[in-house]
Measured scan of single mutants.
Amino acid sequence: DSWHDTVDGIELELHGADEELLKLAKELLKRGVSEEEVRRIIEELLK
């Protein structure tokens, strides 16, 4: 799946992010949310 590559990229960027955020990112990508949107959501949550 192409979203796996996206998640791997996000995981590299979010090496400090907790497991729950990564699960959320994967779930959003699986549901068709764009990579940009996922990054934006996670950045908001990390604030």
Rank of each mutant, 00 (worst) to 15 (best):
D1Y: 00
D1T: 04
D1K: 03
D1R: 01
D1W: 00
D1G: 09
D1F: 00
D1V: 03
S2N: 15
S2H: 14
S2Y: 11
S2I: 05
S2P: 11
W3T: 11
W3K: 14
W3H: 15
W3I: 15
W3P: 13
W3E: 14
W3R: 04
W3C: 08
W3Q: 15
H4V: 10
H4F: 13
H4C: 07
H4M: 09
D5G: 07
D5N: 04
D5P: 15
D5A: 02
D5H: 02
T6H: 15
T6I: 15
T6S: 08
T6N: 13
T6L: 10
T6F: 10
T6K: 08
T6E: 09
T6M: 12
V7T: 13
V7F: 13
V7E: 07
V7P: 10
D8S: 12
D8Q: 15
D8G: 13
D8H: 15
D8F: 02
D8M: 10
G9S: 11
G9Y: 12
G9P: 14
G9W: 15
G9F: 14
G9D: 13
G9M: 10
G9T: 15
I10G: 12
I10K: 15
I10M: 15
I10Y: 12
E11Y: 01
E11K: 10
E11C: 05
E11T: 02
E11Q: 11
E11N: 12
E11S: 14
E11V: 07
L12F: 04
L12E: 06
L12R: 08
L12S: 12
L12H: 11
L12K: 13
L12N: 13
L12D: 06
L12Q: 13
L12T: 07
L12M: 11
E13P: 12
E13V: 02
E13I: 02
E13Y: 00
L14N: 11
L14E: 06
L14A: 08
L14S: 08
H15C: 06
H15D: 09
H15L: 11
H15P: 14
H15R: 06
H15Y: 02
H15A: 13
G16A: 06
G16L: 13
G16F: 10
G16I: 13
G16D: 09
G16W: 09
A17I: 13
A17P: 04
A17D: 07
A17G: 09
A17E: 06
A17W: 10
A17Y: 08
D18W: 11
D18I: 10
D18S: 15
D18M: 13
D18N: 11
D18P: 14
D18G: 13
D18Q: 10
E19Y: 04
E19I: 04
E19D: 15
E19A: 07
E19C: 05
E19R: 02
E19N: 06
E19F: 03
E19L: 05
E19V: 04
E20T: 07
E20M: 08
E20Y: 06
E20S: 07
L21F: 06
L21W: 11
L21D: 02
L21A: 05
L21Q: 05
L22Y: 04
L22R: 12
L22Q: 14
L22F: 03
L22K: 14
L22P: 01
L22H: 12
L22E: 10
K23P: 01
K23E: 11
K23L: 09
K23A: 13
K23G: 05
K23D: 07
K23V: 10
K23R: 10
K23S: 08
L24S: 03
L24T: 10
L24D: 01
L24Q: 04
L24N: 03
L24K: 12
L24I: 08
L24R: 06
A25N: 00
A25K: 03
A25P: 00
A25R: 02
A25I: 14
K26Q: 09
K26V: 09
K26Y: 04
K26T: 07
K26G: 09
K26C: 03
E27A: 05
E27M: 01
E27I: 05
E27G: 04
E27Q: 06
E27F: 00
E27D: 14
E27T: 05
L28M: 10
L28H: 01
L28N: 00
L28K: 00
L28V: 01
L28R: 00
L29W: 00
L29Y: 02
L29E: 04
L29V: 07
L29D: 01
L29Q: 04
K30Q: 14
K30H: 08
K30T: 08
K30P: 01
K30C: 01
K30M: 11
R31Y: 05
R31P: 02
R31C: 05
G32V: 01
G32F: 02
G32L: 02
G32P: 00
G32N: 02
V33L: 14
V33N: 05
V33W: 09
V33P: 00
V33D: 02
V33Y: 14
S34Q: 08
S34V: 07
S34K: 13
S34R: 07
S34I: 06
S34L: 10
E35Y: 15
E35G: 15
E36G: 09
E36S: 12
E36H: 15
E36C: 01
E37C: 06
E37D: 12
E37F: 03
E37V: 11
E37L: 08
E37M: 05
E37A: 11
E37W: 03
V38P: 00
V38E: 00
V38N: 00
V38M: 05
V38W: 03
R39Q: 05
R39T: 07
R39G: 04
R39K: 12
R39D: 02
R39H: 06
R39W: 06
R39E: 03
R40Y: 05
R40N: 05
R40Q: 09
R40K: 10
I41Y: 08
I41V: 07
I41G: 00
I41K: 03
I41A: 04
I41M: 07
I41L: 10
I41S: 01
I41N: 01
I41C: 02
I42H: 00
I42A: 01
I42N: 00
I42P: 00
E43V: 08
E43Q: 15
E43C: 03
E43N: 12
E43S: 14
E43L: 13
E44V: 14
E44T: 13
E44G: 11
L45M: 13
L45G: 03
L45V: 06
L45D: 00
L45A: 08
L45H: 07
L45K: 07
L45W: 08
L45N: 03
L45T: 06
L45R: 07
L46M: 14
L46R: 09
L46N: 05
L46S: 05
L46Q: 08
K47E: 05
K47C: 01
K47D: 04
K47Q: 10
K47A: 08
K47N: 09
K47T: 10
K47S: 11
